[in-house]
Amino acid sequence: MVEDAVFEKLPEYVVGVVVARGIDVHRHTHMPQDVLRSGEAVFRDRHCHCDYKAHPDLVPYREAFETIGINPNRFPSSIEAMGKRVLNGAALPFIHPVIDLVNGISLNFAVPMGAHDLDQLGGDFEVRFSREGETFVALGSDQEEVLPAGELIYGDSSRVRTRRWIWRQSEWGKVTQDSRNVLFPVDGFSGQNLDQVLAARDQLAAALAGEFGALVSVHLIDKDHRYIQV
């Protein structure tokens, strides 16, 4: 679900969603790693000869950050941060078959993508503004941060799942070797990169079904369809 107040500030906001159930990480081949290396190569080819921050792929997210009061230079979106590492020559590490797949598709289509273990959610999963006193633990950390009210986040009724919208994901709800049921959001904008969002969503869904044996469904959230039933 996306809170009404989000669309008041970002009326073209869309979220492509893949819901995958019964993921079997032991079934996969080397495909996820191949997708990651291919995505890195595509991103370098598209962005290496320009000021990548000014590239049409990234400008919509930088402008949206500014609209909601987040400095995109200090807190770049996940795709901008990952893309910068790739353009600097880094080969991203293999983390987990599903995460490698997501990162490769994210780079290939230059869209932010997330992965959230459905079995670790507490209540409705939402894109919304934070409430006073909510807390967050960054991926790889054990330090709890207290948020101010009014920060755009992914969250449920009890936990903040990402800070600053698509900047950094939480330790809570991360995908592990035990994760079987996962929700994957793909963030974008209807008037600017909807085709990329849908293509990334559909490639991910096909790979999860074909490589990991998951039962998948695909969805699109926008200002006229603000929630899905999972």
Rank of each mutant, 00 (worst) to 15 (best):
M1T: 14
M1C: 08
M1H: 10
D4C: 05
A5T: 13
P11S: 05
E12N: 13
V14G: 00
A20E: 06
I23Y: 14
D24C: 06
M31V: 15
P32Q: 12
P32I: 13
P32N: 11
V35R: 12
A41M: 10
V42Y: 07
R44E: 10
C48G: 12
H49E: 13
H49R: 12
H55I: 00
V59N: 00
P60I: 01
P60G: 01
F65E: 10
I68S: 06
I68A: 05
V86D: 08
L87A: 09
P93M: 04
V98S: 05
V98E: 05
V102F: 00
V102W: 00
N108Y: 13
M113C: 09
D117F: 05
F125C: 02
F125P: 05
F129M: 06
F129E: 07
S130Q: 06
R131C: 11
E132W: 09
L139I: 14
L139F: 13
G140S: 05
S141H: 05
S141C: 07
Q143Y: 10
L147S: 09
P148D: 12
P148T: 12
A149P: 06
A149M: 06
G150C: 08
E151V: 15
L152H: 02
Y154L: 14
G155L: 13
D156M: 11
D156E: 10
S157D: 15
T162F: 13
T162H: 14
T162C: 14
I166N: 15
R168C: 12
Q169K: 15
S170A: 15
G173P: 04
S179K: 06
R180W: 03
V186F: 08
G191C: 11
D202Y: 00
D202F: 00
G210Q: 03
L215Y: 10
Y227E: 15
Q229C: 14
